[in-house]
Computed example of a mutant assay.
Amino acid sequence: MTSSPVDRPRIEAAVLEILAAIGDDPGRAGLASTPRRVAEAYAEFFAGVGVDASALVRAAAVPAEPGRLGELVIVRDVEFRSVCEHHLLPFLGVAHVAYVPGERLLGLGAVPRVVDAVAARPQLQERLGEELADALDAGAAPAGVLVVLEAVHGCVTTRGPRQVRSSTVTVASRGVLGDTAARAEALALIGAPREPRPPLPRR
């Protein structure tokens, strides 16, 4: 697994140019640390550039005991944030990941890690779902994969149409979960009501 390191000095220089280009003074007190802060944020936002997500899945997949595979595994409500490649504005949402095991099971903690890796790069929501499905399919060889993403996009809520209540849902499927009936069953389970969660204990 490799990733491309972010060139922070180059980002800082670019931010200085942007601030000057919009007519503000990059040297004033409120903006003096902005280039550094943006570079730090971009290093986090784009940490997934160059990461092989299928390798992350492969490393987390373990052989299943015969007869103990289960019919369907669903990990719901995995929060993610990504950056739209068209305007470099964030989009925030949740991922629901379902798979039908083949001969290997995926550690449940690996699902959020893979979602984070694929989301941490300039993205489109449609491609994000497809790349997640491809990574799970290639890394764990399941019988089927379904990825449902629901997200709110900064490029829709803060500019142009400014539709602050709008969200976007995308679906990507592979294998047996591409079948209409199987996909409908998985989608129904993903959308099933959640039990209220108990409050976290106070420290």
Rank of each mutant, 00 (worst) to 15 (best):
A41H: 07
A141Y: 03
E103Y: 04
D179G: 12
D137Y: 06
I22L: 03
D116R: 09
E79C: 05
Y99T: 13
L149R: 00
V164H: 13
P142F: 01
P26I: 04
A61M: 05
V115P: 02
D77K: 14
A138F: 00
G175N: 11
V164L: 10
G102D: 05
A143G: 15
L106H: 02
S54I: 06
P63D: 12
A95Q: 01
R197P: 08
T157G: 06
L16D: 13
R197H: 10
A21G: 14
P9A: 04
T34R: 10
R10Q: 13
V164F: 07
A151Y: 00
S82G: 07
V94T: 15
R197V: 11
L88D: 08
S3H: 14
R10P: 06
V51Y: 00
D52F: 02
A39P: 02
A184H: 02
V94Y: 09
I18P: 03
M1G: 14
L108N: 04
D137E: 15
R194E: 11
E71T: 13
G144S: 10
V164P: 06
G129A: 10
L89E: 06
R76A: 09
S82A: 10
L19S: 06
G129S: 08
S82P: 08
A151Q: 07
A138H: 04
R203T: 14
G48Y: 00
H96K: 08
R202W: 08
A55Q: 15
H96P: 11
A60E: 09
E131M: 10
E131Q: 15
A119W: 00
A43T: 14
L16E: 15
L108V: 14
G107C: 03
R174A: 04
S173A: 15
V147T: 14
H96F: 04
L128W: 10
G160T: 00
I190A: 12
P142S: 07
R174V: 00
R8H: 09
P112S: 07
A119C: 04
L189D: 12
D116M: 02
A95W: 00
L69K: 11
I74R: 02
V152P: 04
R68P: 03
G70M: 11
